[in-house]
Design a protein around this nucleic acid. Structure first.
Lengths: 198, 198
DNA sequence: ACGACAACTGACTCGCGGATCAATAGGACT
DNA sequence: AGTCCTATTGATCCGCGAGTCAGTTGTCGT
């Protein structure tokens, strides 16, 4: 985890810092991250962080952009795999949330809170929401075309599936009333009733 | 909104402050609330706030307890009304979230984030989750008994319904991809498929 | 009408963490 | 083997907001 002591060129350092910032947010939460934490996690000075990012808020915002983009590409890759649409839909929903990692939802949940008061962050979430809906929607349409799926209102189904996943993730992460395993079972079940049954 | 200038006895002031704190959290968000904000909102000194609450964290925690309890009683009242179970289930889910008010979800979403790092808050959410599930569960059991509902796994159905509601609320509040009206329609639809269909 | 206590004030302390900046060290290119 | 730019330091500034406290004022019982 301790970063390279050597001098790095801008592009590289920037990404290092972004990743460290994300890791730190996961660890202590958005509200509690300090610039000095990020710096010491990499073994660098706080000054250097401000050399790369004008302000702490900018760092956080950029870190979100980074996480959103990373997750979207993960989803897109899952969607582009070979195989029956239904399997790919399941795969996409399984990667949803930061890299599908168990702890990754911490970031999203913290982010929702922040988004309510920081329009910049809210925009990132809208992007994430729009594009992930787009990815799923394309898959559903494909399934409708090849006759493997049935669905009267694809747009609504996609929204409901994503919402269920969000809600179950909160139950798993915050309330701890649902296990990750149960979550998957239920999401798969919902996919079935939304896109296969009627 | 400006509070009574006069002297109040402990019990009264305490509640005033709690309410003001909740209002302030709604307005600016959990991360940004300042004790002085709460004080000035009531037209009192910051010192007085600390006279009633040892620390800011304690104030916030107590405010959460208050909000949770308030919402649970609202739900319980909705559950206790006369009429067919199905209607009462709909009513309960409609009051869910702070007093069912449109803006109330801000508090819960902020709270989820906080709960991830403050065990005290996490406990409150577990209480909220457990008890609201209990309320719904009792209604479902009643419906099963009188034959008006059909459901193979009531516990699971209740959890899924609550999760869907949480997720849709995030979509409405954060992503703004779902209207309140649509949210209700979809929740009602889910009630139908979970508890009536099969 | 006077204690006496409980509610309340407001000015103060203090530490924390974001931001700054002059000075320094690496390394690429000539 | 020096020049010049760029990444990096670390000491320092500064404001903000939590928490304190000595003193003030309302109110209730007697």
């Amino acid at each position: 985890m301790t970063g390279t002591r050597t001098r790095q060129k801008v592009e590289v350092r920037r990404e290092e810092i972004l990743l460290a910032a994300l890791a730190e947010v996961e660890r202590v939460g958005l509200a509690a991250v300090r610039v000095s934490d990020v710096a010491t996690a990499l073994g660098i000075s706080t000054g250097l962080v401000f050399y790369h990012f004008r302000t702490k808020d900018e760092l956080v915002a950029d870190a979100f952009t980074y996480a959103v983009e990373r997750d979207l590409t993960t989803m897109e890759r899952a969607a582009a795999r070979r195989g029956p649409v239904l399997d790919r839909i399941r795969a996409v929903l399984r990667t949803y949330g930061p890299t599908g990692s168990a702890t990754g939802w911490r970031l999203w949940i913290d982010g929702w809170a922040l988004a309510q008061h920081e329009p910049v962050i809210a925009d990132h979430f809208r992007t994430l929401d729009d594009r992930s809906r787009g990815i799923l929607r394309a898959l559903v349409d494909e399934g409708l075309a090849d006759g493997s799926l049935t669905c009267s209102d694809p747009g609504a189904s996609v929204r409901r599936l994503l919402a269920l996943l969000d809600g179950l993730s909160v139950a798993a992460e915050v309330h701890r009333s649902v296990s990750r395993k149960q979550l998957r079972t239920w999401v798969d079940g919902a996919i079935e009733t939304e896109l296969v049954g009627g």
